[in-house]
Amino acid sequence: MISSDVIRGYTDTIILYLLLDKPNYGYEVSKMISDRSDGKYTMKETTLYSAFNRLEKNGYLRSFAGTETGGKTRTYYELTPLGREHYETKKAEWLLTKEVVEKFIQ
């Protein structure tokens, strides 16, 4: 099981990554996280919403009301240019972190 303490520093980056291609809404993002991790990590709803809220306040995300084809109105989140930049920074940071940690824990 993944410790939430360990992954906490990267929840924001994971969400930014999942929004790189196109805007999306809460449940879809949460589903992508579970699916891509083969069910090994499920982001709690409060964690996800807190992250959306924080990222929006920092100007990395923008939200708008959108409608799925034939579906309900949902809040979509879209990456801002600043968010894209932030993602690149965090990605570089992670690659370095990973490299260093792997030198010690194998």
Binding site: G26, L48, Y49
Partner: peptide, 16 residues
Amino acid sequence: RAKKELSQMMEDKYNQ
């Protein structure tokens, strides 16, 4: 807003 968003996410997950 938080409550509305959370309820939407939970409803989506429930339906799925």
